[in-house]
Design a binder for these strands. Sequence first.
DNA 1: TTGAAATAATTGACATATCAATTAAAAATT
DNA 2: AATTTTTAATTGATATGTCAATTATTTCAA
Lengths: 142, 142
Amino acid sequence: MEKLNNIIFYNIDHSIRLYRMYAQKQLREHGFKITIDQWLVIKCILENPTITQHELSELVFKDNASVTRIVDLLIKAKYLEKEINPEDRRKFILHVTKSGEDIIKNVQEIVLQNRSKALKGIAAKDLETADAVLQKIIANCK
Amino acid sequence: MEKLNNIIFYNIDHSIRLYRMYAQKQLREHGFKITIDQWLVIKCILENPTITQHELSELVFKDNASVTRIVDLLIKAKYLEKEINPEDRRKFILHVTKSGEDIIKNVQEIVLQNRSKALKGIAAKDLETADAVLQKIIANCK
DNA sequence: TTGAAATAATTGACATATCAATTAAAAATT
DNA sequence: AATTTTTAATTGATATGTCAATTATTTCAA
């Protein structure tokens, strides 16, 4: 068991890295010029149109600094625009452009394929157990 | 989002990030000037004294480039030394210094505490299931 | 045996992670 | 109202991740 305690973190790390590499490779091979993290940020803004960068950082579990930089890159790539929030000039309103909406739509199918490929052959019950274990770890580390 | 929390990959990512942050914070608060990744690299060299950087990168799931840079930092920190392997001049022999051995020894207790804190309240059976699920994901993404 | 292919490590470029410090604005307190 | 505190976002510094290109060396094959 002491061994598993050691190995479990090793496997959590390994699995998420392999999944990200696989997912990123799929995007690249289909000609999409976007990273997994950038995709997630746009997706969250589309689903929460009034979200601030700080709220975004909590939602995707990234540092404020990372979000600032990802948003910058997305603006450079013309997937996003930002505008000072007149209600609170510390905040920004983030707008997804047409081109940003399009890429999310076009990438969606690949994302679903990636997930089902990665989870193939895993029983729903076991997946639920694994998910509960991960949530417990999350709670324990907070 | 299709309920972020319901997506296993989100929770895998979240859990490993929180665990790493927690573990890193513990190291910092106990005055150890070393990162989790650096700790892992030294530990692997101690356990595999003839390992090459390339083999190391496979063992810790990192890119060759990352390993090169981590090793560089560890040499700067005087935890490691390297020497060209006379058998094959493309390779290096990596030596852990006394100071490197010491820090691993001293950090060990904290690592164990971190793990047990993160896994507190999780049934052994569930942990095994979670581990099997992660291994399956790893296999699927290869 | 020599030229081609494979391997080990490095480097450059760029993206992301983390912490600390800073700026600007809003909210709370006195 | 003026001062203090809090909040949102940015920036700088450093570490790591990833890919592609490069160098040095070894191995393989014609």
